[in-house]
Amino acid sequence: MKHLKYTISFFLGILLFNITSCDVVEGPYLIDDNTNPVDTNNFVKKVLIEDFTGHRCPNCPAAAEELASLQNFYGDKVIGIAIHPSSTFAIPDPLNSSKFTYDFRTEFGDDIDNIFELTTVGLPRGMVNRTGFDTEHQLGKDEWSSVIQTELAKSPIFGITLSSDVSNGNGTISVTAEALTNINLDKTEEIEDYNIVICLTENGIIEWQKDNTAGDIEEYEHNHVLRTILNTTFGESMGNSFVDGDIWEKDYPVDITTLENANENYSLNTLFMGNGNSKGWDENNMEIVVYIYNTNNYEIVQVEQIHLTNH
């Protein structure tokens, strides 16, 4: 009987342990305090999410929704690019088919996927500022928010200012980057080189999308779709040593028709089952996304976004 007492107290012990070490959350679950005041006078650290997706990937709309929710919460501090890399999820059907005929793939997206290998671990996946390369950068959508927290807590080392006079398919984008601190001044080894990348994305593309619950959606809104990169996939060097306040500037001419033709050519001549149906860009729905990354570890240190037109 003494043994039984031991046993009972042991189980009571487990029960006690159990009550003290678990957190049952009673509603409401959503925290109302959604105030993230953005100090408009100073540069703030922003975060880029590259969402690897595909129109035939049934789990991908949930990742797009996650991105939208994050943007809703953090406002313009979270910037997104949707990359449709060449995998079976992004392959279009022939032009005479009824669904999935649009070719979202780009040479730039494929180049990025070749380095970061997101498709090899399955979609949807994303990178947050490309942190954690090359072991912990391929993140599931539910992992994004925690990395965003860490990234947003950092101080920005660059500030980016963008302007654009593009209209009717032509114009110039002006990019200014300012060093917000001394960078690499005293270092003699392991000097970090910084590259800057100028991308164009498009929102509101209405095309087919597979969805887990809703099936094949005819009028799905594809947002943040990577259309092109103006200064090659991995950008151009800004140098490696900066004094606080140093300015780097450059203008980029834009001709939408030429850029569209380049994507069409890639689709028709390079891609498996490419059908060239990649045009119809609407400049009024397009964004300029510019990011600066450290070439040693690919980590994006700052990113900025503005509309392409109407400035």
Binding site: N18, L30, I31, S69
Partner: peptide, 18 residues
């Protein structure tokens, strides 16, 4: 029981899930 820090500012998440 699993412990993981709640660093999600939008939702109240349990840190110790039993």
């Amino acid at each position: 029981s699993r412990f993981q820090k709640d660093n999600n500012p939008a939702f109240n998440l349990p840190e110790n899930v039993a």
